[in-house]
Design a protein around this nucleic acid. Structure first.
Lengths: 134, 134
DNA sequence: CAGGATCCTTGGGGATACTG
DNA sequence: CAGTATCCCCAAGGATCCTG
């Protein structure tokens, strides 16, 4: 408690400053960087619903490597978006699921995925047109 | 119109295949990769409203370099999300704005930015907790 | 099954200097 | 002002092999 308590009222929920992702120093920028990569953008929405296992995810996310899967999941877990449940059995049985806040984020990210799926044709057309123009 | 017309009905809006971002080969994956980086995630939402100039963007997007700004804008332009308007004056006056489809995407991406701003405190807390736990 | 450990390559991306 | 051109380097990330 160094120099906080600006109004003696704000404290319950983020009142430290408006939070601006466009500001390089803002902590929210870290969050953006956490989710601004294709594997996170694919994994998080994929984790809605049933908890899923390593191999399941490995198969469902086309093109991901074991290394990146583990790395991304650990990163998300460290940031409280994903919960890792190790059932402590042999052979190992580990399941990943979204935390409440991760679920909240997944709703937003699904929109991104859906947008990509819905509009890729137009994007491809634009690329094609640009290519021909050049 | 090479070999299209599967049902003679579908043609108006994407009926070639369901489009699945989780499929490594799906063209929509390219779209995802196009926007799955922090600069695109910051630039696209920033470009709503008034067309903006290079220097403006350079100042508004904290931490971006001239190189990455140009590179990202060109990439987005090539994919039809951003329109570049060179007013052909001297000194140069170039403005960037969103295409209709880019505007559509911006609405989705703004949600991501807003989420990051709104929830960074919880994320930070989770990180902190994980750090102490370890 | 779930992953850790290494090795190795590519390219993302910053810094700096120059140009029309 | 709006870039382009270089240099350069670190780290993202794939491939492969090994372990509890």
């Amino acid at each position: 408690m160094s120099s906080k308590k600006t109004t003696a009222v704000a404290e319950t929920q983020a009142e430290t400053a408006p939070a601006d992702v466009w500001s390089a120093g803002c902590p929210s920028r870290r969050v953006l960087e956490l989710i601004a990569n294709k594997w996170a953008l694919l994994l998080i929405p994929l984790l809605r619903g049933k908890p899923q296992r390593n191999n399941e995810l490995l198969r469902k996310v086309g093109g991901i490597s074991q290394k990146m899967l583990t790395q991304t999941l650990r990163d998300l877990e460290l940031n409280g978006l994903v919960l890792r449940e190790d059932h402590q059995t042999v052979p190992p049985h580990v399941e990943y699921r979204l935390s409440p806040i991760g679920l909240s984020l997944s709703r937003t990210l699904i929109a991104v995925d859906r947008w990509a799926e819905a509009n890729h044709a137009q994007i491809d057309a634009a690329r094609q047109a640009a290519r021909e123009r050049a």
